[in-house]
Design a protein around this nucleic acid. Sequence first.
DNA 1: CGGTATCTTTGCGGTTTCTTCATGCTCCGC
DNA 2: GCGGAGCATGAAGAAACCGCAAAGATACCG
Lengths: 229, 229
Amino acid sequence: MAKPTVLLIEDDPDIVEMVRYNLEREGFSVLSAARGEEGVELARRRVPDVVLLDLMLPGMDGLEVCRRLRADHATVRLPILMLTAKGEETDVVVGLEVGADEYVRKPFSPRELVARVRALLRRASQEPADATRTRVEIQDLVLDLGRYEASVHGAPLSLTRAEFRLLWALVRRPGRVFTRSELADEITAGECVILDRNVDVHVSSIRRKLGNAGELIATVRGVGYKCRD
Amino acid sequence: MAKPTVLLIEDDPDIVEMVRYNLEREGFSVLSAARGEEGVELARRRVPDVVLLDLMLPGMDGLEVCRRLRADHATVRLPILMLTAKGEETDVVVGLEVGADEYVRKPFSPRELVARVRALLRRASQEPADATRTRVEIQDLVLDLGRYEASVHGAPLSLTRAEFRLLWALVRRPGRVFTRSELADEITAGECVILDRNVDVHVSSIRRKLGNAGELIATVRGVGYKCRD
DNA sequence: CGGTATCTTTGCGGTTTCTTCATGCTCCGC
DNA sequence: GCGGAGCATGAAGAAACCGCAAAGATACCG
């Protein structure tokens, strides 16, 4: 998982500037397009995590963009947040029917925008996450994602967030080998980049906390780590 | 598994049409009623898997429908999703008291609606007892949703609305970890957006009011909060 | 309209956790 | 057995996180 990408389709350069500044400051990577066609094309090629879409665009308008994104297989599930000017209430309704997920009225506060984008991402990502396994047992080790708890032999462990994420990644697919950078991404959830060696440190500390069960984590020399199965 | 059935109680034919179209396309079977009495009757006779309920109805309003569904043995644990128009915040509060499980603000996107209905069904199938609980006791703490009252050791607490909702969300599913933004959604019922950090403040104030029982709320560092079980 | 309770945001300080670095150890081919 | 690359681990500075207090904003009520 990398830094979340936002595609902004908007023709007013001031707004583009403002949104870009605020989203980048909050750790998003921002793409932008001033015209509808361009936006659809970009969405198809780069597939962002969210689309912010102005309703009023020169050429192809926001509704049409929305329809096209929904029509294309690559972008059909992409969360779309619509930016509307005040008093376009009916357009909002149409927009939602056409497949937008959220809307924000102009003028909007940067804070609100960021919060909405976050909420949208969260909802989008938790949808399939619920379907995924939330609990894993392997020998004496039990991990429960929903409760954020780990235990060995029934004795609870106190893992930090990074440790938990790392262990979760390994244990979820026993036998499969992960490179250090794969694991680093799991730890940071793609938010930032860390050195591969850091993974060693976390592994070391996990092993210490696991005690005997520490042997569950096998070092694969020259490659990375895996969980024994 | 058979096609899940949704009962929509809503007087605006446009919305009925829109919801029906979208839910059927997604594989649901849809019943509808334009009036509250009719809806209650239908719910009793056909017992759907979910009820979508408009708050503003001619005749018997949504809240009353909700109460009746909760009063009847056949429908007592039916998941209810409430449709609310903008600015009906106070009604939303009452809706929570009466025992609705989810809210969607109008205007809503069909995709969001479908997603919520799915989420509701999934939750209902996983924890059938949870949906309709109106009272929770955990150690010395008692929360009563119907009366909007909380007490520790029998001594009543004076919680604000935000505090009550937050605590209710935590206590209803002990052990499960909630992120700050999930909790923020619970507090505002999706009406507006607040900063994650605000959740800390409410938690802090709840803990103070709970006294010793404040330890029931555990901080999960780097993740959020949960209720000890 | 004014007063009050509640909600939201903000900033600081203490604490934990993360990251990096340096050092010593292990494994492996030769 | 030796050398070297790769790994383990301790330590320390940097960063993130949380609790709390206090102030500004908003909603509520008479």
